[in-house]
Amino acid sequence: MKKITLAILIILSMQSCKDNTQNKNVTKEKPISDLSIYNLPSQWTNQDGKNIELKSLKGNVLVMVMIYTSCKAACPRLVADMRSIESKLKPETKKNIKLILVSIDPETDTPQRLKSFAIENKMNQEPWIFLRSTEENTREFAAVLAVNYKKITPIDFSHSNIISVFNPEGELIYQQEGLGVNNDETVNKINQEAEKIR
């Protein structure tokens, strides 16, 4: 009997195609909403080389941007924009907020590389998180954020400059487009959402 169960397990695991929504493990908590990024199954690695699932971030307000660390043009400005947002967060509710930089160049941006980028930019502490995944997961994630990107040379990417805000359910609630734009509304949205969390 054991053998059969094993055989079934093997066969099931061979199917790359799993019906994710029929996942039985998530019944205890409130179900994930239809528009939530936590419906995405993708696995990510942070700057400490730790594997995390997006779902583990549930319950926080997320501020996300897609960058690559070897970028010389827009990314430093995008990082500066993120920093500017961080400086305006209300100290009382800041603990409910994560600022996340996702790499669009997972090949170059190894966890080590992300780590040194974090240290160089003095972002190697809360509330900053750096994430990378496979090229496919990254493409899918960008699709959700409506971020377009393309490798134009071995070291350079063309990409949309968009900062996205997600509520604790993982629903996209606001996007700031462009570089160096006024971020008052973005900051307001983030603070409002963070205050709702007890």
């Binding site: 043009a73 827009a74 409506a146 393309k150 350079d156 990417f157 063309s158 487009e177 462009g178």
Partner: peptide
């Protein structure tokens, strides 16, 4: 998509494509 500013603002490196 709404690209209020010029493309260079929304897309880095767009000039090379």
């Amino acid at each position: 998509r709404k690209d209020k500013n010029n493309d260079k603002n929304l897309f880095c490196g767009s000039a090379s494509v």
